[in-house]
Amino acid sequence: MRMKAWMLGAMALVVVFGSVWIANALGYWTTESTKTPALIESGEFAGAADPADIRGSYTFGELEAAFGIEVEVLAKAFGVDAAEAEDFQLKSLETIYEVLAEDGTEVGTGSVKYFVSLYTGLPYELTEVVYLPLPAVELLIEEGKVEGEAAEALQAIAVEIPDVSLTGTEPDGSNVESAEESTEESAVSEVTETLLIKGQTTFRDVLDTGVSETEIEAVLGAEMPNPLTVIKTYCTEEALSFDEVKSGLQALVDAQ
């Protein structure tokens, strides 16, 4: 007996939608992305969420659900407005720290992975140089998540949160500066103020104050790298204490 075309079509619909209904009933069917990190498969932490699987599309809210770190803590650590923290996507950190990234100091998803690992005690293997915002480092130390040499190492990779506030016209116009005035003040500041070595200071900046290459090498105990190298980055790569190197170089600068 031959089946008519309309009967075949009806049976196909029953099979398709019936399968969907069954899959949905059993929990296998979903129309939304779950945004759940993979689990650690072996070892002491088997079954726990894996920090290495955190993606840039994840939000702070999803991290709280996966790792138990409160949204407020994440917001404070990475300089995010608490009112926007719940739905804040990690890839948006690139905007906040864009200025630092231009100098080779990137704060992004990798930084969040490292912070989550340190905060929770879950394992995470670093495969690149990672920087953390200063509030994140201070929070980890204050809460006893890291201490001793580990705390010193974190201080060497800490960076200040850039000032990303937008300047514009206030209602009364009292706080507005013209671009020309701002430029002039900046130029005067550079001439009159002593260099203060910070996270983004390069060896060239130090040389420009009159410190010699020989003096810098005496502090480093090694040959000075490319003058355009950021001092903190050099210390991180060479496993040197940034605080000690900074203090030594700052003394040379202040003596000029």
Rank of each mutant, 00 (worst) to 15 (best):
E70F: 02
E138H: 14
Q256T: 04
F17T: 01
Y234A: 09
E72A: 07
S189Q: 15
Y124M: 07
E94S: 06
N24S: 09
E102S: 05
G18M: 08
E181M: 14
E94Q: 08
V211R: 01
V16C: 04
V14I: 12
V137A: 10
I161M: 04
E149N: 06
I157H: 00
V129D: 11
E143L: 11
T194G: 05
K91G: 05
E149M: 04
I96G: 02
D163Q: 04
T236S: 13
E32M: 09
A65W: 03
T127W: 08
E102A: 05
E237G: 06
V206H: 01
V176C: 14
G173Y: 14
D254Q: 02
G121D: 15
V14Y: 01
V116Q: 02
A218V: 10
E180W: 12
L90S: 00
A151S: 13
L228P: 02
G210E: 11
E41W: 06
G104W: 08
A187Y: 12
D254I: 01
F17H: 02
G9R: 07
D53F: 00
K198C: 12
A75Y: 01
M224N: 08
L13G: 09
I231Y: 10
T209L: 03
E152D: 13
P135G: 15
E180F: 07
E98C: 02
V230P: 02
V73G: 01
E238Y: 12
V16M: 04
V71Y: 01
I40T: 03
G199R: 01
V188E: 13
E193Q: 07
E217I: 05
C235P: 07
E84L: 06
S212V: 10
E160H: 03
G18V: 05
E177C: 15
K35W: 11
T95D: 13
G121I: 06
G27M: 09
M1I: 10
E185N: 11
